[in-house]
Design a protein around this nucleic acid. Structure first.
Lengths: 108, 108
DNA sequence: GCGATATTTTAGTCGATGCTAAACGATGTC
DNA sequence: GACATCGTTTAGCATCGACTAAAATATCGC
């Protein structure tokens, strides 16, 4: 949870998540998408995101492709919803939204 | 948005939000709830939360009562939901791959 | 193997932020 | 008014994290 918040607390990391949200993107492409920052810096951000479990990495030759792991923003979402659920009568509405696929163990 | 994330990025501030989520709490009571930190530090956290618009303050004599403003965590929630919304189509595809019993999308 | 390419890791700098202690401000009580 | 109580603000310090430049690692083509 803290790791998730730390990860999305940095604007560049949010941008990386956005860019990789529904397709793989190579580290170099990500770097080029920014332009005002070093490759090293981006790599470090990717490291943070990976350690927080928010991106997947696929290695292909000397390239590395990153992709957001949407469902692992879940803790944050759950936290928010729990906050509301504790007090709000929107509980029913939230419960409806919440019936998302609960597939095999992709929990953490 | 950034202000909201910064505000909840600090564990103590999250705890303050939690404590004031559905009732007013005096600054002194909040301080006492922590115990391992100065009154000044708590006051500073309260300032951050207030500036981010995440708490209301009510002044009564020399006391100040704080209370979370739930709906102003909205930006974060909206951001999260937007992220998911952006990938809804793809999610639908994925849902097909899963052996998930096809139920109509209860998404809004 | 050698050099080029793609990425990560490391060392060091700098600015932001949380903390404490102390000064300050405002309000209640005598 | 004098004094205590409740809270905020300030100054200074320490830690953290984002950044750069450079070194290290890995893989490709020759």
């Amino acid at each position: 949870m803290q790791a998730v918040i730390d990860a999305i607390g940095e604007p560049r990391r949010r941008e990386i998540l956005r860019l990789t949200w529904d397709r793989e993107v190579g580290a170099g492409d990500l770097h080029r998408a920014f332009g005002d920052v070093t490759f090293g810096a981006i790599s470090q951000h990717l490291g943070v995101l990976a350690r927080a479990g928010l991106v997947d990495v696929r290695k292909d030759g000397r390239r590395r492709y990153y992709r957001a792991r949407k469902h692992d923003l879940g803790p944050l979402r759950a936290w928010l919803e729990q906050m509301w659920a504790l007090s709000l009568d929107r509980l029913a509405e939230l419960a409806e939204e919440d019936e998302r696929p609960r597939k095999k163990g992709s929990r953490r």
